[in-house]
């Protein structure tokens, strides 16, 4: 049961409301909109993360699912299972990436996906990273995509903390709508 009252879209500023409705008026947004002085900036950062085409969608969603699992965040898992499915991740792959230690032995993931998932796991578990693994990922992705991938870890690990702290209920049916890449931006 969510621990805080939801803001209704009509109580938000015009920009905050646009950004909230564009993404499906989810419980997560209605809860975080309580922080009205910083919510719009947070939504804009999210919009950029969701619309950038630098990382393959499938890779981004695998990382988010792994984060959601490691942060023990049922809300993120609930929303992003569906996003991952839409990005072509199969049920077996979703199961593998949201379970303990056997994901890498399944043969489902490409070499690069495995490296990135390994990096995500090590970073979230130990809060740091050995140089060899980092360098392998950097070599596979290049600097721009490596930073974007780390920014995915940044955003969705921090979001998991907020969702867990507020105990936000998973939406019954509403699901994240991907914002269009152009228009409505900054």
């Amino acid at each position: 049961m969510t621990r805080i009252a939801y803001r209704r879209p009509e109580e938000m500023t015009v920009r905050a409301r646009e950004l909230t409705l564009e993404r499906g008026n989810l419980n997560v947004y209605r809860a975080l909109a309580n922080a009205e002085k910083v919510f719009t900036g947070w939504m804009l950062a999210g919009r950029a993360a969701l619309t950038s085409s630098v990382l393959p969608l499938r890779l981004r969603e695998l990382v988010i699912l792994r984060i959601a699992f490691l942060m023990d965040c049922p809300y993120e898992l609930g929303q992003h299972r569906d996003v991952a499915r839409a990005a072509g991740v199969t049920e077996d792959e979703i199961h593998a990436v949201t379970s303990g230690t056997h994901w890498h032995a399944t043969g489902y993931f490409t070499a690069t996906e495995q490296l990135v998932l390994q990096l995500t796991s090590e970073l979230l578990t130990t809060q740091r990273l050995g140089a060899p693994l980092f360098n392998q990922v950097h070599e596979a992705l290049g600097s721009e995509a490596t930073i974007e991938m780390l920014m995915v870890v940044n955003r969705w690990s921090g979001l998991a903390l907020m969702l867990n702290a507020l105990d936000v209920d998973l939406d019954e049916t509403a699901r994240l709508v991907m914002p269009p890449a152009e228009g409505g931006g900054t």
Partner: peptide, 26 residues
């Protein structure tokens, strides 16, 4: 209260996630 508590979570979230990036990149 609602607003300041949620904003506190936003600040924590910002620096928590950023710390992971900074640690990863050393």
């Amino acid at each position: 209260g609602d607003e300041a508590l949620t904003e506190l979570l936003m600040i924590i979230s910002c620096y928590y996630g950023l710390a992971l990036v900074l640690n990863a990149v050393d």
